[in-house]
Design a protein around this nucleic acid. Sequence first.
DNA 1: CCCCATTTGTCCGTATGTATC
DNA 2: CGATACATACGGACAAATGGG
Lengths: 133, 133
Amino acid sequence: MPVYQQLADILRNQIRSGDLAPGTDLPGEFKLAEQYAVGREAARKALAVLRSEGLVATRRGEGSYVRTPRERQRIELGAADKVTIRMPTPAERVELDIDEGVALVVLARRGTEEKLLPSDEVVITGKREAQKG
Amino acid sequence: MPVYQQLADILRNQIRSGDLAPGTDLPGEFKLAEQYAVGREAARKALAVLRSEGLVATRRGEGSYVRTPRERQRIELGAADKVTIRMPTPAERVELDIDEGVALVVLARRGTEEKLLPSDEVVITGKREAQKG
DNA sequence: CCCCATTTGTCCGTATGTATC
DNA sequence: CGATACATACGGACAAATGGG
């Protein structure tokens, strides 16, 4: 198994187990590379994997940290409403302030414009009370 | 703007415009790099961007091609059903045969196990006919 | 406001591994 | 088996953003 994936697995386990709690700063790329005796690229790639899973966020000049789960807004769908999901473009990620590893929920409601929502801020259900006819 | 992003923008536009139709093979990394007078890494990164958006898929030893839109299965949600979305882990991508740049739909239905579905194969709506009481 | 140290981002070059045809 | 093509890995160099002093 590739070095970067092994490292990604180690860090993912530490995150899932709570050993690395949400909000925790991760070591820098060079420190990570040094600690695990790998090249910088392997460390970078491992972080990239975790970013792509939405577990970690990285800010240039700052470093990486464990992402905090978002508060989820409930979306109730009627029979005429449609939701599809796709990944945002880099431009959309900037525009909507979406982290890497977070999908885009496209909500199409009758007579309204499409709404674009970060997938980690929503939970989708059917309508609570149904209308007749 | 970074070279790889400029190249990604060019290719994305060609895909969106239909100039590069679904199923079309893209030039190899070296050819792409040569054609646009960039390094191989820039070409690779551009392809990585498009993969992360679900526009392109790459097979080792084969090359890259424009992904074909999937047939979408309609999912009708009741009031008790819950859907959340997250990115799959590399292991899950292998397990469920999901391309890069495709999210995972987690469908939780009353009394059943969670169902995991590729986000590009579903469209979600509310229940067509509502039950009373 | 500038300077500086830190950290990530970009880019290039090179080499080797591995899957496909 | 060879040719092609992508994947991994390391090295170095410079750019760009951040934060502290």
